[in-house]
Structure formats: structure tokens, C-alpha cells
């Protein structure tokens, strides 16, 4: 465990809390992509199958349970809550996210640490997480005004994986740990946020509304 990793996991948790607060307090999921949320449920389920097979960890296990529970809750709200589901931008959330699942599955089939059920699914979840934000970024581009909570949610979500990159650099030098799969996927994931980060920081510094081109 190192400070980068701890900060990264807390940032990830914060992003989910911000989203839950937004949905619960405003009773609205306007600007949130249900497709991205669906993909995150798939990411967490395929990654945390080892909850039951590997020894529990005082740190990881609670986080895994919280990530699973919150991501499923968010999808439930957006799909079934009578008030919230009306606010979902169904016609703007148009990214064909199913086209993301198959390539990640095929890639995981061929590139994984070990050809076992758990390892292939784990690789699948790493690859899928890298691209899961795409529907959300596409939806933000078509949103006329992005509310602060949504902007902060996406920013924290991007920041957490950037902090993981620092954690991996630290672990490479301090613990001589090398993990190509999450490293490359994490780089791709963070790179996808590049232009969002640029516009987010610009709007924050000029104290103006966040607007993506």
C-alpha cells in the first residue's frame, strides 16, 4: 500500500459518492450516461469474482463490496426509479457500448496473465474499464450545460486512474512490480480523459461553465 494508491481509491470512492449525491439530491440523472454505468457494473462484477475465492482483505474487500453495491444501485436508480428514470437523456446517450464489450472480451481471451477463468475475466474488466467512460464523454459533448456535480464526477473518475499510474510507477521502483496489462490499459484510460481534463481545468480557472466542443 502507498499514498498514491490510497488517494486513488479514495478519489474513486469520492467520484461514486458525488454521483449518488447528485442522483439522490436532485432526483435527476440528466447528463449521466446509463451505458457507462452499465459497463461499470460489468467491470466490477468481472473483476471482483475473486471476492469468494481469494482470502479476504481488510482493505480491498470493503471497497469491492462498496463499488459493486453502488454501481448496481446507480443503474437501478437510472432504470427503475420512477422519478430519476424520466430524467435520463435516452436520446443523447447514443454510444454503441456493446461494440466495446466484444473487442475487450476477445483481447482478454488472447492477452491475460494466465489462461484461467478468473484471470481472463480480470483482464476483460481491465480493458473494459479503460473504454467504459466513452459513452459518458460522448454524452457530455452533446450536453448543452453540464452541471457541476456531473463535471466533478467525471473529473474524479479520470483522476483516480491517473493516481493509479503514479502508484504503479512507485511500485515499479519501490517493489519492482511489473504489470503490463493494467499499466497500458490505465494509460489509455487516462489519455481518453485528456481533453475533458483540459476543458474542466480551463472552466475551473476561468470560473465559467464547463462546455465540451
Amino acid at each position: 500500500m502507498n499514498a498514491f494508491r490510497l488517494l486513488a481509491d479514495l478519489t474513486h470512492l469520492l467520484s461514486i459518492i458525488i454521483l449518488l449525491v447528485k442522483i439522490r439530491t436532485t432526483k435527476s440523472c440528466a447528463g449521466i450516461s446509463l451505458k457507462t454505468q452499465d459497463l461499470y457494473v460489468l467491470v466490477f462484477i468481472s473483476r471482483y469474482l475473486d471476492l469468494f475465492t481469494r482470502p479476504l482483505s481488510l482493505y480491498n474487500t470493503p471497497f469491492k463490496l462498496v463499488f459493486l453495491a453502488t454501481s448496481i444501485t446507480i443503474v437501478y436508480y437510472m432504470r427503475y426509479h420512477k422519478v430519476v428514470k424520466q430524467t435520463y437523456n435516452k436520446d443523447s446517450d447514443t454510444f454503441k457500448h456493446y461494440f466495446l464489450i466484444l473487442p475487450c472480451a476477445v483481447l482478454a481471451f488472447f492477452i491475460n496473465p494466465k489462461f484461467t477463468f478468473i484471470e481472463v475475466l480480470w483482464s476483460f474488466s481491465i480493458y473494459l474499464e479503460a473504454v467504459a467512460i466513452l459513452p459518458q464523454l460522448v454524452l457530455l459533448q452533446s450536453s448543452s450545460n453540464i452541471d457541476n456535480l456531473t463535471g466533478n464526477y467525471v473529473f474524479m473518475l479520470g483522476a483516480y486512474r491517473a493516481l493509479y499510474l503514479l502508484n504503479w510507477i512507485y511500485r515499479f521502483f519501490a517493489e519492482d512490480v511489473v504489470r503490463w496489462i493494467p499499466w497500458i490499459a490505465g494509460l489509455v484510460q487516462t489519455a481518453l480523459y485528456a481533453d475533458f481534463f483540459y476543458y474542466y481545468i480551463k472552466s475551473w480557472r476561468n470560473n465559467e461553465r464547463l462546455k465540451l466542443p
Binding site: 494508491r5 481509491d9 480491498n60 469491492k64 494466465k114
Partner: peptide, 10 residues
Amino acid sequence: SNQPLPHDEL
């Protein structure tokens, strides 16, 4: 060893 590293991260 080609044992995959344990998934000690989230």
C-alpha cells in the same frame, strides 16, 4: 514463475 501476480489492487 509464470504465476500471475495476486490481484492486490482494486
